[in-house]
Each structure stands twice: as C-alpha cells, then as structure tokens.
Design a protein around this nucleic acid. Sequence first.
RNA 1: GCGGAUGUGGCGGAAUUGGUAGACGCGCUAGACUUAGGAUCUAGUACCUACGGUGUGGGGGUUCGAGUCCCUUCAUCCGCACCA
Length: 883
Amino acid sequence: MEYKFAEIEPKWQQYWEKNKTFKTVDDFSKQKYYILDMFPYPSAAGLHVGHPEGYTATDILSRYKRMKGFNVLHPMGYDAFGLPAEQYAIQTGTHPAVTTGNNCDNFRRQIKAIGLSYDWDREINTTDPKYFKWTQWIFKQLYNTWFDEELQKGRPISELVIPEEVKANGEEAVRAYISEKRLAYYDNAQVWWCDSCKTVCANEEVLTDGSHEKCGNPVIRKNLKQWLLRIPHYGERLLSGLDTLDWPAGVKDMQRNWIGKSTGAEVDFEIDGLGKKLRVYTTRPDTLFGATYMVVAPEHALVGELVTDDKKEVVEAYIKAAALKSDLDRTDLAKEKTGVFTGRYAINPVNNTKIPVWVADYVLTGYGTGAIMAVPAHDTRDFEFAKEFDIPVVCILDPKEVENRDEVLTGNACWTEDGTYINSASAETGIDINGLNKAAGMAKIIDWLEEKGIGKATVNFKLRDWLFSRQRYWGEPFPVIHWEDGEVTLVEDENLPLELPDLEEYKPSETGESPLANAEDWLIVTDKNGRKGRRETNTMPQWAGSCWYYLRYIDPMNADSIFDVKKEQYWMPVDLYVGGAEHAVLHLLYSRFWHKVLFDLGIVSTDEPFQKLYNQGMILAFAYETLTGAKVTSDLVEEKDGKYFHTQTGEELRQIVAKMSKSLKNVVNPDDVIERYGADSLRLYEMFMGPLDERKPWAENGVKGVFNFLARVYRFFSNNENIVEGEEDPEVAKLLHQTIRKVGSDIENMKFNTGISALMVFNNLAIKKGKVTKATAETFAKILAPYAPHLGEELWSIYGNAETLAYEPWPLVDESLLTEDTHEYPVSFNGKMRFKMELPLDMQQAEVEKAVLSDPRSEKWIEGKSVRKFIYVPKKIINIAVG
RNA sequence: GCGGAUGUGGCGGAAUUGGUAGACGCGCUAGACUUAGGAUCUAGUACCUACGGUGUGGGGGUUCGAGUCCCUUCAUCCGCACCA
C-alpha cells in the first residue's frame, strides 16, 4: 500500500501520450477556452523550478475546464532563437540548430515528466522554418502597411495616396515617400557596438557603467543601417486598448508609462537674426510668459546654424563630449546640469522678449522636437539649470496659500502645481491670462497660438520606433533583397521561408555586419535581368517569434496560410495568459502592436490578443549570510535548533530569502524533486506555497508535507477495505460537497493554495472516519485530479474505470446537503468571543436575545454591568455591548 | 523623485471582503507502535505574570465589532526615472 509514485506517474504519462488524451479537436460547437503559457527559451540549464509554477497553474485550470465541458486549447512550444546557442556555436562550431534541438528535447522531457496536459501535436518552435516562414510573412505585412492617422488604422500600402507634388519629383521621391509611411523601414540608427567583440549589443547587454557584460570593455554608439518598426503610430490604440483588458493593474500602468502619452503644444519661436524658427514641444504652453531661455539637444539639426562664430569652439566641444557620454551619464549620474550658450537669442511670441538659446544634454533629441522653452519658475529641471547658470527666474503663477509662496514669487523656489497667473499679459501681442487658473490659462493660450498660427495642440509619446534588427546569425532572416541600383524588394511569398545558410564561422564580420555577411553563396542574388543584389544580413530580434506564436498554435500544421480563418475566429482571443512579470512591457506590448496591425489588415478577428493576463510570482530560495552580510553558499550551512551555522567556521548565520542562483548554490532542479517525491508532489507544492502571484521561497520541508498528504490519500483511498457501499455518513457527505464547491471556485479564482488546503481537510476527515462510500471516493479522485492528475487517474482506475477521468464531468454540488437550519454562533461580549451557541436560523431577534442572555455562560460577562446593545447578525455573529 | 505592491505565530501562509484572527502545511513537544525509521498513528502547539489579559509593522480614528475602512508613520521589494 506504499505510494509508489515512481511507478504510477510514468504509467499515466505513457497512457496520455499513447491515447493522445489531450489532443484538441476544433469542435466549433463547444464552448472554447484558450489557456496559454508564456513559452520558454530552452536554455542548456534545463527547466528551472520557476517554470512549473505557471505551467502547473494553467494545467490545473485546463484540466478543470475540460471536466467542466469546455473545449480547451492548451499548447506548448519553444522560443528558441537567441544568443546562447550562437555564442556556443562561435566557441565550438556546433550549429545552433543542434544545440537548440538538444535543449528542446530536454525541455520536452522535463515538461512531460510533470504531467502537464498539453496537446503535443501543436508544439511549435520559433526556429523551425515552417514556423518562421510566417514570421517573415508578417514582417512583409508590416512593410506593406501604413498608418492612417485619421482613421487610426493600419492600411495596405496600395491604398496610400501619393500627393501630386511628390509624384512630380519622380519615382525616387515616390519611393522615399512610401518608405516614410511603411510600418517597417530601413534607416540609420544608433546601436551599441563593442569594438573588442566586434559586435552589436542589445541594450540589456550593456551594464550600467557602459561596459559590455560579456567582455567588460566599453561599448560605443555606432550608426548602422537598421530595420525599425513604427510602433508609436499605434500609441493611442495601445493605450486605449488597455482599458478593455483584464490585466494586473501594475502591468497596465507600466505599459501606460512606457507609451508615455503627453498632451501639450508645439510652439514656434523666431530666432533673432537668422530668419528661421525653432519649434519646441511643451506640456505647459500656459507658462510661455515665464520662459526665460531655450534649450536645444546637442544632436538638434539646427545647432550648427544657431551657434554664433564666437561660440563655435565651445559648443562643438560640448557636443562632442555629450556624444561620448552614455545614456546613464546623461541622466541619473549627472547630478549637475551642463550646457553652453549658443550666442543666439529667440523671440518669445507671447511678449516679443529676447531669450537666450542654450545647448544642453538634459534635452533629449528623440522626444518632442528636441528643443524646449525653459520655464525655471515652474519646471524643476529648468529651475536647476537656471540656478546653475544664473539665468533669470520669472514667476508667473501665484501658488497662493502655500508655505513658501514668497520664495516662489521671488523666483527662489520652483512651483509646478496649479495657481493663479500673474505677469501673463502683453498689450503688444494681445494675450492676457492673468487671474486664470491652469486649466483655463492652458485652453486660452492654445486657442491664441492656433489662431495666430504660431503653434498648435500636440500629443507626444515616449514610445520610440522599435529597433527591429540584430547583427546576429541565430534569428529569422529578413525576407529582403537590397539591389545594386538601390531598390529594395521583398522575397516572394512562394519563396518563403528564407532559411539560414549553414556556416563554418559564426563570428560577426569586421564591419559590424552579422555573420550572414560571410555566407557568399546565400548572400548574393541575381534577378532574371542580371541585376545583382544582396540579401539583408541582419536578422530579427528574439521578440519576433514570440510576437505571434499564440496564433500559430491555432493551426500549427497549416502549410498554405498562417492559420485557418474559421479556427482563428473560434479560438481567439486567448482567454488566459500566464507568465512572468518580466515581460510586462516589451513582449506584451510588441505582441499587442503586431496583433493590432493584423487586426487592421483583417487577418485576425480581435483587436487584442490576450483577454486576461496573470503574472505568477517568482520562486525564491533561502540563502545564508554572516552577521556582517557576507553570503555563504548553502552547502556550507548546517542547522541546529532553528539556528544556522557555518560548517567550517562555526559562525552563526542569518537566513535570508534571495533569488536562486548558482553562486549561492540554492538552485532547485525539478528533476531532483520529481525523483524524490514525484511529479504530483512537485505540482502540489508549487501551488501550495502561497498565492500564485506572490514571490515566495522554496522550502524542501514543504514538499515533504504535500508528499505526506498524497501518500495518506493513496494509502486510504486505494485500500478497498476503506471503500464501502451504501449511504454516506452525513458529516462526510456535507464536507465532500463543501469541498467540491471550494476546490472548484478556488481553481476559477486561481487560489490554488487554499483549494489544496480544502482537499487536505477532507482527506483528514475521511481518514478519521475510517471509511467512505465508493461514490465519495470517486468524487474525491475527480476533484483531486486537476492538482495531482497521476494519482487521480490511478485511484479512478482502481475503482474499476477503464477510461481516463480527464473528461469526466466535474461533480455537481448538492446544495441540499449544504443548507443549514441552525447555525453555531460565536457569542461575543464587547467584541471578544466568549462561547459558541447553536441557534435555529429562523429565530427572531427577541428570542435570540432571551436565549443568549439567559444562558448561564453569559452571567459572568454581564455581572455588575448593563447590556447597552445587542447585535444579532443572522448566520454571522452575536455581539453584546456591556458596560 | 514618480508609479505599483507587500508587512499576520518559530516558518510558508488562511480569514466567506466589516463579524470566532492564526484554516492547511512545515517545524516543535509529549505519547503509541516498532527486527530504530528522515516510517506511521494520537494529542498539543500565537504570546504572557493563564478561570484573566495581550495580540495582524508603529501611532491615531470610525464602529456594537477592524487584519479588513479612514488618517498618519516606518520598513522591504519591484518597475520607471532629465520624456519638457
């Protein structure tokens, strides 16, 4: 009667595999439920104990939904392009496809060992040409789409109207015009370049000190021809779409923040003596009267013209220095603001005052117009700058009743909140907002600017064009040919996928091109007219494959189209998407962007891909440090009487909670857990640790606890001496139905930890009673099965059932067993529970009072006091206020 | 600095959303069984000066009643960070 999980579990895994138990059929008559895990990057290290957390949660839900009669789509795949396989190839010459294949095999083996109910016939792999054929195809759609601002909608490039004046300038001009509209375009872009590795680095490979994480050498900015995607066009849609989604508030906020919509105005300032205008973007056009200087970014196009001869040397030196600074130097490390005067003045349009124009790197080139009007009295950054360089501070907004009002009025403090305008009128220009508040002043100024043609209300986004190419081998090739005459064409659909060439040498080339530039045979193409061209040597970033994989699961074998339209309409959107919070912005924003483009083009049927999103919390581990804070690896720690000591020095250590890491030697491998306790224990423990969305530490003893529970379940429920015929004991029957309800609702609410607790409570009662009916035992096996499917199936078959229980209907709750006619009330005096009392539910308040107050146990709490108030809340509580 | 969380026994965590604080599990204590084991079973286990009192990071408030609501404060974690 021993719980032999090592025999039970592989047996059922083989059964499921052999019978294709979890194969999903496209039965459109059934209600669908699409439940998706973020697919893993198959690293050489194998599955981490964090992976099964989310996977188990979705598996429980999937199994539950199947039992509830839903048609469940629950697939798995691999996000297998990426750097490590390529680095390994550079070192060993092993083709990344080989490394990747091995890693995927290992991941598949590990995932199957957990007993997850995926439909393995739908497995996908982003590196499979049959898959990335469609990644390339989507890229072509992006390239051939423009964004219609008016309709707020992506449209085919064929519907783009070319203005006559552009046409008049010839084919080249038309091509350039279209290129400026395409959602995917090819242009110079700044990238990080490591000169010692001869490679481009992703932002996340650059450490905060500006060095390359791989080699420690400093990275530099380099201009290279790159593919970019015009995601900011979708800023408004990506922002407003969030309101319709059932996502964690934190993720929505992060996306809103990243999109960074702001409203304000663009205003033109005449540059004195140059006959040119300088356009600024400001969110505070209402503070124009307080503008005492202007700033342009060092990279601003007009800097060269702006600077006067006597300032040339200084300004050029400053620009050069700014170019060498990393982003970080230009932001938070730079406590002091820097900048130089250009020698030039601009004219403030509201009052015709001359104000100096500076160059300073606190103004960024990529945002707004790359130039600002500075209002030190009402902007903290400008205030700091003005103080640094002794520029006048003119207060134009009276904060009224605040402590430091006098300081604000005299320009000695900065005020960014609302107030009443002062000094904000000019007879010369005819504008006057004195006495108004911020909202009114803003509206009036914008009207005035628009009327005069000096400026207009504008919306800006922080979101920038998405740098979409990498100088790498192991990624999707762009289906693009650059011809010798300058034309760019896309590879025809029938010639997709464009596969990667085999290489001997995976090192990047000297010029900053990807290793693909070494593949001569692949690289050079000739068209039927003898024209020569070169294939694009950049590859797509890892995001590309993960941007749309959820769509391919719907129809993964389809060779003729990305998916069948009917199937897409049936399965989309994803009902629940579970994964780590680290993808809160990039992956989820990029996916939404692609999805919206596909929606606009009529390729998908929903505007948003993921209806509900859930982030599982990270699994941490205990770690140890000395009392002075030095970390000690876990293999050097021993526990004595609840305290921890260093095995070598004997020093007392402190237990802390930290991320699992090789350096702390506290990484838990799921394989080891399965070997010692079985997959059901692993699953159960991961769910029992605590709320799914919280971070929590792994504790080996906890695994033992759930293992003991499963062993107790097995010993009791597999023993036919305990399983009897006849009527169920009323107490058992009642608890069973409470448990059915609790387990079901806890699964729906993803409160798996308390669901397990309810199963444990029932198991404890069953064991205490010593016997249950067969019907009860079968019901228990069913509600246990989503959590511990191997044990569930085992018990189910022990009871004589030949088929899997995976599609058995979820047990119904017999409400008649749960309705009570009495309730055990806690009786409190002054809010303190003193005793319990069973009372009929239909008793009236007066009788309840009589019954409670006449109870002998009430005497001592009332003695010498008077009853001031008697609270009776039916089915809840009785409280007596005495005093 | 801004935004988002989270603080409950020795530990992981429950608490039907204003109604018995500490479910369930770990650990611990005592006992049973025993060809001794990291097995199983039974009982106990928030704290204290224990027929009572105190307790959900601290302080205040609302209420018959507060872990839950309000004000205030502290600590930790995660994002973002010169976006004009």
